[in-house]
Design a protein around this nucleic acid. Structure first.
Lengths: 209, 209
DNA sequence: GTCTATATAAAGATAGAC
DNA sequence: GTCTATCTTTATATAGAC
């Protein structure tokens, strides 16, 4: 298919359910039968829409990244300050987690990537790269504007931020906590902002490359 | 069994292999056949040592936490400063990741916990609790000694630190990066230490509870 | 697009011999 | 402790009718 708007209503339902199952149980933790049972049709009907489980997961993955990009643009348009943009970003993780304690689709797939095909591994790398590039930009702007202060490169700060949110979902699920990504995200933003108010010279030690 | 030293040589090999498979492929990503093939015995022989896959995973989990506790004690004994203790802690994650790009056993199980039994979920919660308690102590001592500076509670800082390292393994695997947990860990320690050198007043905003 | 029927393989597990 | 044989269930997938 060219794009996700080309998906038939049933295909879209399948993708919706598969996405949720990947987030809650992992790629190796659900089957076509689970999806069929939920929709009320039979397994072969799922195969009619997605010949293989891998192609289904690939569609889930591509749509997820596509939607993320849209949400990042929406954050940039609605929020002008860097701390507010970060808060919007944290909210994306929190919404996902709060909704039936789902993991980030790519947090789950990243953990499982030792069992996944090359085409899906490619999508995993692409998703994280999109996140890191966007975060590094936000951290760069925030640092220059004096809204955020940190002593590592923009790229390292982006990696810390993304990792902490992905990890917060894992730790939160493992500890059966209600709001882990939000707690971690807000604490990090508080740290970065508090440092900016105190800081005399908030130059990064290692540049912004 | 009372303790892990009671494991027969074959049982121990089984646990070793199961641990590695959980870390690399997840609980739902391997089978008794994988273990049997690697050891050179048959599936029923694995069942002789561990009647169910779940009981095997439980032993893997309990041994993993047991060993972690020992390693934390070793770090406390060999390192006196808080930044050095954190560096030792980061090294634990880095060693695991560097060894064939393994995940933390509980990072993987935490992500998959929607498919796991109550007894394993209990172990997941226990593991993270042990980590958070140890880290919060280290952060508290480091803050009081003026070696570390951060503007959230000791507990929140511990949660950020653990989450970031767990997440770094996920992101690192997903991006096929060589050294993600080390990079994230060292960057965080640098941040916390650099802040301590600059800080005028490094009181936590929200107390140390 | 959906169904029944079926193929094929793998999974977790047990019985009982050696 | 290990084996062969077997059970039972599930998974992914295909063929072909409606």
């Amino acid at each position: 298919m060219k794009h996700f708007s080309d998906l038939s209503p049933t295909a879209e339902r399948i993708v919706d359910i598969a996405e949720r199952l990947i987030q809650q149980r992992g790629f190796n933790g659900f089957s076509y039968e689970d999806i069929a049972g939920e929709i009320g049709i039979r397994k072969p009907s799922i195969h009619h829409h997605f010949a293989s489980k891998e192609s289904l997961a690939l569609t889930v993955a591509q749509r997820y990244t596509d939607r993320l990009k849209q949400k990042l643009l929406a954050i940039e348009e609605s929020q002008s300050s860097s701390p507010a943009q970060l808060a919007g970003y944290v909210e994306l993780f929190d919404e996902t987690y709060t909704e039936e304690r789902r993991m980030c689709t790519f947090g789950m797939l990243g953990a499982e990537c030792g069992t996944l095909s090359e085409s899906i591994r490619f999508e995993i790398g692409r998703f994280f790269a999109v996140n890191l590039a966007w975060l590094a930009e936000v951290f760069g702007r925030g640092r220059i504007a004096g809204e955020l202060s940190f002593s590592v490169s923009d790229k390292d700060q982006a990696l810390i931020f993304l990792s902490a949110l992905e990890g917060a979902m894992v730790v939160g699920k493992g500890m059966e906590t209600a709001s882990c990504p939000k707690q971690v995200g807000q604490a990090m933003i508080a740290s970065l902002s508090a440092a900016a108010s105190n800081a005399v010279a908030s130059q990064p030690l290692t540049g912004s490359d």
